[in-house]
């Protein structure tokens, strides 16, 4: 515990830590602010402005021309341009087209915000973890530290614990703000009903599926987000500890982003379930993550269009990410324990 307290004190003394945490929190607050702003019903001024745009659009000659064309084609019984059951008034601009307003829904908004904020904090966490120990290797202070505490296992664990706790605390604050603001916005202007709306994929349509959600589900989503942030911080630490360089650790993450996520997605022509992004989504989202792939027949119309759906549960995501982190911790620790410290 003494070592952990020392490492936490050192983490708090680092400007890089505060800079990254403040940046991540600012990003989280921006996301929350944007979400609350979207949840707010349009003001009288915004409605008036939207109405002005509708009127302006209505006065455009092409709108009237298109309306006349639609009515004429329906009168003539032509179905080439418009189907018989098409309502020609749908051509006319409407107020909601210019208001972009959707009533807030607590569960749905939370499902959007929590992963976004968690990913921002996770990125900051990985950088904090990598630079925290990378700076030690660069300055050579690991050796000095080992002259005071030669038990490398304890030193390794204390540093890993410090970055995990050091990121979990600001993440807790950020997620608290997310939950509270989303609840307040939904209760003020929308729905706080604990239901989740998802879509069932089928051959030619998407069916809306409404699922009841409990507070426990929502709480666990927050806990998973928190663990993701702490895990990312430890992941950054593990890489920098293994490479003995924060730059190498950041480079590895960037290389994975480019090759692992970018290139593989492009070559695969979809989203492989073993990609980190797939597993992170599964870990964070309520009800897991569906990877849907449509066969070629859906485009050509030759044959049945049965989508191939792979559902990754939170457990699938957790086991994968946890396993990866555990393997990284073991390799990094063995390297730290066995290699000479210069």
């Amino acid at each position: 515990m003494r070592l952990l307290r020392v490492e936490l004190a050192r983490l708090r003394s680092r400007r890089a830590y505060w800079l990254l945490v403040v940046l991540a929190l600012a990003g989280a607050l921006l996301a929350v602010g944007a979400s609350v702003n979207d949840a707010r019903p349009p003001t009288a001024g915004e409605i008036a402005e939207a109405q002005r745009l509708v009127d302006q659009e209505l006065n455009q000659p092409y709108i009237q021309e298109e309306l006349e064309r639609c009515e004429e084609s329906q009168a003539d019984g032509e179905t080439e341009l418009y189907p018989p059951d098409f309502d020609c008034n749908d051509i006319l601009p409407r107020l909601e087209y210019y208001l972009y307003y959707e009533e807030p829904n607590f569960v749905d908004d939370l499902q959007e915000l929590v992963p976004a904020v968690a990913l921002m904090l996770a990125l900051a966490g990985a950088l904090v973890g990598a630079t925290f120990v990378g700076a030690e290797w660069a300055a050579g202070t690991i050796g000095t530290h080992l002259l005071f505490e030669p038990r490398r296992g304890r030193v390794f664990a204390a540093k890993a614990g410090a970055v995990a706790i050091g990121l979990a605390l600001p993440a807790l604050v950020a997620l608290g703000v997310v939950y509270l603001s989303t609840w307040l916005a939904a209760s003020e202007w929308g729905s706080t009903e604990l239901v989740s709306i998802s879509y069932e994929f089928s051959e030619d349509f998407q069916t809306e599926v409404i699922t009841a959600v409990s507070w426990l589900d929502l709480g666990l989503m927050g806990v998973r987000a928190l663990l993701l942030v702490a895990g990312a911080a430890v992941g950054g630490y593990v890489l920098a500890m293994a490479f003995r360089s924060s730059l190498a650790a950041v480079g590895t993450v960037a290389a994975y982003g480019l090759v692992g996520e970018g290139l593989v997605r492009a070559l695969w022509g979809g989203v492989p379930p073993w990609l980190l992004s797939s597993r992170v989504s599964a870990w964070l989202l309520l009800g897991g993550y569906d990877i849907v792939e449509y066969p070629e027949s859906c485009n050509t119309g030759a044959g049945p269009c049965e989508p191939d759906i792979v559902t990754l549960s939170a457990l699938d995501g957790g086991l994968y990410l946890g396993g990866l982190l555990a393997a990284g911790l073991i390799v990094s620790y063995v390297l730290f324990r066995r290699r000479d410290v210069t």
């Binding site: 003494r2 070592l3 020392v6 400007r15 000095t144």
Partner: peptide, 16 residues
């Protein structure tokens, strides 16, 4: 640690 004061450096080691 280059960015820490001399005293801060020693304090961290002392706490260890």
């Amino acid at each position: 640690f280059p960015a820490f004061s001399g005293r801060r450096n020693l304090l961290l080691l002392a706490r260890t």
